[in-house]
Write a protein that binds this DNA or RNA. Structure first.
Length: 534
RNA sequence: GCCCCCGUAGCUCAGGGGAUAGAGCAACGGUUUCCUAAACCGUGAGCCGCAGGUUCGAAUCCUGCCGGGGGCACCA
């Protein structure tokens, strides 16, 4: 990997391989962990050692001897078992600052996903109750993944699928109806305090007809409002009922039958998914003639593909991991294509308060809703905490810990760097600094180790975006933001930006602008604000 | 029984086949006439769950085992 803002090391190495009479090879580059090892490193010599029959260090020496240093590279050396390490020249550092400033909001964006039309479906909680922290994780994750895909040039639609037909909706309607009549909900109905709240709402609004419909609309509004407050907005809310009404379910079954994957057994209609990698076959239409939820899933996938999406991404909780096999089977059976369907599974969130587990149960009503959680910890802290861990990690979310708005919480560490930058900008304005343009700025004056390290970290941003997008791993953005903030705080401690030295002030001013832009872009992808003051 | 995720410092977690495995918190010590000390600097702390395998090289890939969490429907 070698980002556009870096010198063309790959070509230099390949040319050197050729003139040293060594076999051609596309060299892999990496960022050395240790700073002494330079800015970029390649292991080509080691990978060639066996086939060439020479020790890796000797090969590395030959490559280096035959190499013409590309522009922007100050030095190259052989180290360790045979690494070839490159050190960037000062003008490369200036180039990074200029690139970041010039690109602005687009800094870090690429076009390697251009032309793709991606549907990202997430949250998709049924509107029979308020969403909880698990949905919150999915909201944060799905939105961030969507944003990352957009950063690769893809056109993304954020979609929310919900069940507005069927048994659960009926039970929900009955529960609210009972509450309005002052009665207890049915035994197998919904019980939480929100049901009586909802009933009160509807009574105040004078709703009398079609209570079930009104209740679920109201619930969906509440969920939407919660997500909105969390900074997550959907392009499409898709109700299952539309599939029933349009006849899409029957069409889907016939479509799959025509493709030769449907059979009947024991009075039911089955989809032969086992032959396509699923654990077992699945029922589409029950013996009583009712289509299953799975049939709707099939119709829905076909509908999405028909809407012109090239890629269908599903973000689901780990309890849905069993869906992977059947959904990919549907993708293949329906002709959508399994390579166009991607299922991202995330682990659960356990809620604690001072190390004590908070029980979440819709039945008992002892549920901490996501709304309440945001009330307590704030949208930024909640979102950041839910995003800084890998989707594969179970999160133990301790409310008391996250709400503690002190140094304990990394979100403040990152946001504080934003506030400090804003402070510098205010000072620069007050003292009448005239920064000129970044192109004229004397960036060669940025020689302090803290300055160079900050530039290095800024320069890594495009790689981070690409990697995070390709791995669907927003936590890499969060971890990077912490790294960048650290680089900034060290710079801030060591280097006074606004000083009597007008030239140095200009150079540092633009470095800070580059840092601010990078930080803003990273926090923007995470949906976390970059405050001007704290 | 089968499937998925996890196991790395006292705690919570990063770690894209590479070089001396990192960060935050917690503990201890230091830094402010100067753009916000929600910061910075320093100290201690590790058979990367265990055992094999692949590789020039494994925390990372493969297999098995142990431990923790979750899932298996003609429910939605």
């Amino acid at each position: 990997m070698s980002p556009e803002s870096s010198p063309d090391l790959a070509t230099a190495v390949r040319t050197a391989l050729a003139s040293a009479g060594l076999p051609d090879r596309d060299p892999a580059f990496e960022r050395p962990r240790q700073r002494e090892h330079g800015d970029w490193s390649t292991n080509v010599a080691m990978t060639l050692a066996k086939s060439v029959g020479k020790p890796p260090r000797q090969i590395a020496d030959e490559v280096v001897a035959a190499m013409a240093l590309p522009a922007g590279v100050a030095g190259v050396e052989v180290a360790g078992p045979g690494f070839i390490n490159f050190r960037l020249a000062q003008d490369a550092f200036a180039g990074i600052v200029r690139a970041a400033v010039a690109a602005g909001q687009a800094w870090g964006r690429t076009d390697h996903g251009a032309g793709r039309r991606v549907n990202v479906e997430f949250v998709s909680a049924n509107p029979t109750g308020p969403i909880h922290v698990g949905h919150g994780r999915q909201a944060a994750l799905g939105d961030a993944i969507a944003g990352l895909l957009e950063a690769t040039g893809a056109a993304v639609t954020r979609e929310y699928y919900f069940n507005d037909a069927g048994v659960q909706m009926r039970k929900f309607g009955q529960s609210v109806t009972a509450a309005m009549a002052g009665e207890d909900p049915p035994e197998d109905g919904y019980h939480g305090a929100y049901i009586t709240e909802l009933a009160d709402d509807l009574r105040r609004a004078g709703v009398e007809d079609n209570l079930q419909e009104a209740a679920y609309q109201r619930m969906l509004e509440r969920i939407t409002a919660t997500l909105e407050r969390f900074g997550v907005r959907f392009d499409v809310f898709f109700g299952e009922r539309a599939l029933h009404r349009s006849g899409a379910l029957e069409e889907a079954v016939e479509h799959l039958r025509a493709a030769g994957h449907v059979y009947e057994s024991e009075g039911a209609v089955w989809l032969a998914t086992a032959a396509l990698g699923d654990d077992k076959d699945r029922v589409l239409v029950k013996a009583d003639g009712e289509p299953t939820y799975f049939a709707a899933d099939c119709a829905y996938m076909i509908d999405k593909a028909a809407r012109g999406f090239s890629d269908l991404v599903y973000v689901l909780g780990s309890d849905h991991h069993g869906y992977i096999g059947r959904m990919l089977a549907v993708a293949e059976a329906s002709g959508v294509g399994r390579e166009h369907v991607e299922i991202i599974i995330h682990q659960f969130v356990n809620l604690f308060r001072d190390q004590e587990a908070v029980r979440m149960s819709k039945r008992t009503g002892e549920i901490v809703t996501f709304d309440e959680l945001i009330d307590e910890v704030g949208a930024d802290a909640a979102r950041y905490t839910l995003l800084r861990f890998s989707p594969d990690t179970t999160i133990d979310f301790d409310i008391a810990e996250v709400v503690r708005a002190d140094k304990d919480n990394p979100v403040y560490y990152v946001q504080y760097s934003s506030a400090r930058i804003a402070g510098i900008m205010r000072t620069a304005t007050e003292r009448g600094v005239e920064p000129g343009t970044v192109d004229e700025a004397p960036l060669h004056l940025l020689e302090h180790e803290a300055e160079r390290e900050l530039v290095r970290r800024i320069g890594r941003w495009p790689e981070v975006v690409t990697l995070a997008a390709d791995e669907r791993a927003p936590h890499r953005v969060a971890r990077y933001a912490e790294d960048l903030a650290e680089g900034f705080h060290k710079f801030y401690t060591d280097c006074q930006v606004v000083s009597d030295d007008a030239e140095l002030t200009r150079a540092r001013y633009w470095l800070v602008v580059a840092a601010r832009q990078t930080l803003a872009n990273a926090l923007g992808l995470l949906g976390v604000s970059a405050p001007e003051r704290m």
